[in-house]
Design a protein around this nucleic acid. Structure first.
Lengths: 237, 237
DNA sequence: CGCGGATTTGACATAGTTCAATTCGAGTGG
DNA sequence: CCACTCGAATTGAACTATGTCAAATCCGCG
């Protein structure tokens, strides 16, 4: 992240109006095309969340959704035995809490994996804007659809072998702008969190990484993970 | 599409208007409060689907959603190796295809487990009605929320032991109107389909049933399944 | 009554877990 | 700059739940 200035500060004016990402970001689309006086009342807040801190917790009233500007989040539900079942990671540009648009409260908790910058959007504004702007409504519906796809993908992934789960996870982390060979992935989560996401033991994660490295598909040094043979990786998953 | 086996009885007038379930059913709510002439144009069709026939397939254009009147459906995605990953069963009163409201095409296929009666609702009508009627929009959002919950529940269930998966499935099949003890569940799906739903081998399903029977929690005779000790079953899950 | 698919049972194989021990690596302080 | 330290990651060895394959039994239906 290039942001040296950590702006917890609430901008005097609506922050999305002069945000550099307004054309791509949900916040920008929320105020796009609004009369200026209406846009000014949309209470979007920029926030910083320290590593390990919660953004929201399951059963909290779902008043806001969050767009990640930098850093990374995990969303999880705690099972009866106290373990975190991780349901998703959210990196820059991604939205967290959207599934709660249909519900009064969050069904999962969100916590920062590292210091994370987010924009907080009032759900009421989002809901009402859906009625005013067709393109905004479609954007939200598309996001919901992607959320369904993500959950369906998780269900599929968890019916695969450990190698396939890890491979398909890594493929999903490959940005499309990376040239196929020698792409470098910066994994923001610990092996423990990855294990809780893929429903494997951390030891198994570790063993799979070693195996992939032995087969010259991967080179992993801690959080950095260099994909040596992208095709082989994709073929696995 | 194998429409050949799908017999279609088109009622002369809009079928939801004088349907006995109109107060509970999505179809009824769709036309409720509409001016009579508008309601008449909403093209809801009653259909019968024979056992084994498809209602829709993955990648079909998602023009309709379906309310089950009687019988049972399964929705599934076929994985690369040709196996059906069953994503849900839909019994009477339930809705299938709703997740496609956000997408141009279905992401799963739906097939009848036995002769099944459904009402087919045009998605365009549903989408536009969402803009006109707040209560209808909320009903749809609530259904989408339940769909998210269902998928999250599946994710949780598949992180449990075989006994827990079966137990929690059986508990989910217990109707609330059944007195706790000696409730009888009529399972509409084969052991094979149940296995593909819970991601277990059919042999494992069978063994779990035998185990539960040995512990006097269950008594199963083929498709009929008598819950002898509901509390024990719930405690397992 | 007997056929054929569905279900159950048994014996064995194995992927992944668990527990324990070792190594790595990023901070920290001298 | 080098030793410490402490948690995270890796490796090893034994265990177990579930899968696989094969055989036996059940059950609905012509």
């Amino acid at each position: 992240m290039s942001t040296s200035q950590q702006s917890t500060a609430v901008s005097a004016s609506q922050p999305c109006l002069d945000c550099s990402r307004k054309s791509r970001c949900l916040g920008g689309l929320l105020v796009e095309g609004m009369p200026a006086d209406q846009a000014a009342t949309v209470a979007v807040t920029r926030m910083v969340v320290d590593k390990g801190e919660h953004l929201y917790r399951a059963d909290d009233k779902a008043d806001y959704l969050y767009v990640v500007r930098g850093g990374a989040l995990k969303t999880y539900v705690s099972s009866i035995d106290g373990n975190e079942e991780i349901r998703g990671f959210h990196l820059a540009e991604e939205v967290a809490g959207l599934d709660a648009i249909c519900q009064p409260s969050f069904r999962s908790s969100a916590r920062a994996l590292s210091r994370t910058w987010v924009c907080r959007l009032p759900i009421t504004a989002v809901r009402s804007r859906m009625l005013e702007s067709g393109s905004f409504r479609d954007r939200i519906l598309a996001n919901l659809g992607r959320e369904f796809d993500r959950l369906n993908g998780m269900l599929h992934r968890e019916r695969c072998t450990a190698d396939q789960r890890v491979a398909s996870f890594l493929v999903s982390q490959l940005k499309s702008d990376q040239t196929d060979e020698h792409a470098e992935i910066q994994l923001p989560m610990s092996r423990v969190d990855l294990a809780r996401y893929l429903d494997l033991a951390t030891e198994t994660i570790s063993r799979v990484f070693t195996r992939l490295q032995a087969r010259n598909i991967l080179r992993s040094r801690g959080a950095v993970c260099e994909v040596v043979d992208g095709d082989a990786l994709r073929a696995l998953a």
